Amino acid sequence: MNNVEKLQRTRQLPTIRVESEPSGDAHWMYMHSNAAPGVRPCFHSQMLDDVLGFMNSITLRDSQRECGKLRHLVVASDAAAFNLGGDLELFSRLIRDNNRDQLLSYARRCIDGVYHLNTGLGGDVRTIALIQGDALGGGLEIALSCHTIVAEEGVQMGLPEALFGLFPGMGAYSFLCKRISPQLAEKIILEGSLYSSEEMHRMGVVDVLVPKGQGAAAVQSLIDRQRRAPHAHLALNACRNLAQPVGYNELMGITEIWVDTALALGDKSLKMMERIVRAQEKRASCRVA
């Protein structure tokens, strides 16, 4: 039975599309569903709310979890890009208005999302990022928060926030340091360079690299293999959260530094941010056309 036959139930939210197995054991969440021409494939507030809302809806209480039952959540995209990161247009406006409360509120919702993914939605879920298009900034951060990153060849990945004097403040440093050395993590963050998925695989950031067009099949194969040893993978979730924890307080402390750093940016940095927004809009219009 192929993946299309298994995923029979589809839920449509304003900005995401979800396909689920009838059993509820696996969900494929596609960001940027039905994006209008010119809409940037980034974390607009509505999509952030939809992603958080869906993840909360499939999170089970302790009393609901079945012993030995392993579930999966795949984070993917309907757009040509996986995700281009945070809403730079919103950031620029809030920084110019010196609106710390709203900037922190946005950042806190991002932290809620990546923390939930990283801890396996309470422990019984293995999370997988399927990257079939460019993953930049916050887009790479959500992928890094997942247990496994599956990427197709030929896509770009990176943390370009240094271009406008900022740093990725929603988990990048914490999650990267669980995959690579802190020195290499700092180099990636401070240089702001873009890397191919092949380079990220060689560095150890990407777990599984496959040819273009084979990402979904690779993810399904991974899910099938993990299901053959559910107790082991559930135990690994628990071990991971003990041996390599990324705590909520750590993530929030870093994102508060991000907020204060963002509010200190000058006009030159904000103009660069706004130029990137225009470039993203142009790119989105061309891809849709």
Rank of each mutant, 00 (worst) to 15 (best):
Q280C: 14
V114S: 00
Y173R: 12
G38V: 04
L209S: 00
N118H: 13
Q244K: 08
P22W: 06
D260I: 13
L184C: 06
C110K: 02
F54S: 00
H32Q: 12
D112T: 04
I189P: 02
I95Q: 05
V277G: 00
A243V: 14
V150M: 01
R40I: 15
A218W: 11
S105G: 09
A238F: 09
I188S: 07
R17A: 09
R283Q: 08
E199W: 07
N2R: 06
F43S: 08
V259Q: 10
P14S: 02
E66D: 11
G113R: 02
W258M: 10
I180H: 07
N237T: 06
G154F: 10
V277A: 01
T10N: 07
A218E: 05
V208E: 13
I58M: 03
V39A: 09
G68R: 00
K178Y: 14
R71P: 03
V39W: 08
K271T: 09
N3P: 11
N56F: 07
R225F: 08
G122R: 05
D101P: 07
K69Q: 15
N249Y: 12
Y248E: 12
G85F: 06
V210E: 02
N83W: 05
T10F: 12
I131W: 00
L163S: 08
L104N: 09
M1A: 13
E250H: 12
V18I: 15
A151K: 02
T127I: 02
V210H: 03
H201Y: 09
V210Y: 07
E153W: 00
G137T: 03
M1L: 13
L103K: 03
Y248W: 13
I189S: 06
Q244P: 01
E191I: 05
I16K: 04
S221D: 13
F164W: 07
H32W: 12
L176M: 08
I128S: 03
N237L: 05
H201N: 14
G53H: 13
L270D: 03
S105C: 09
S221Y: 13
V18R: 01
I223K: 01
H27R: 04
R108I: 13
K271Y: 04
S23P: 04
E256Q: 07
M47S: 04
A232N: 08
L163C: 10
E19F: 06
Y30V: 04
P22F: 04
V18W: 08
I254Y: 15
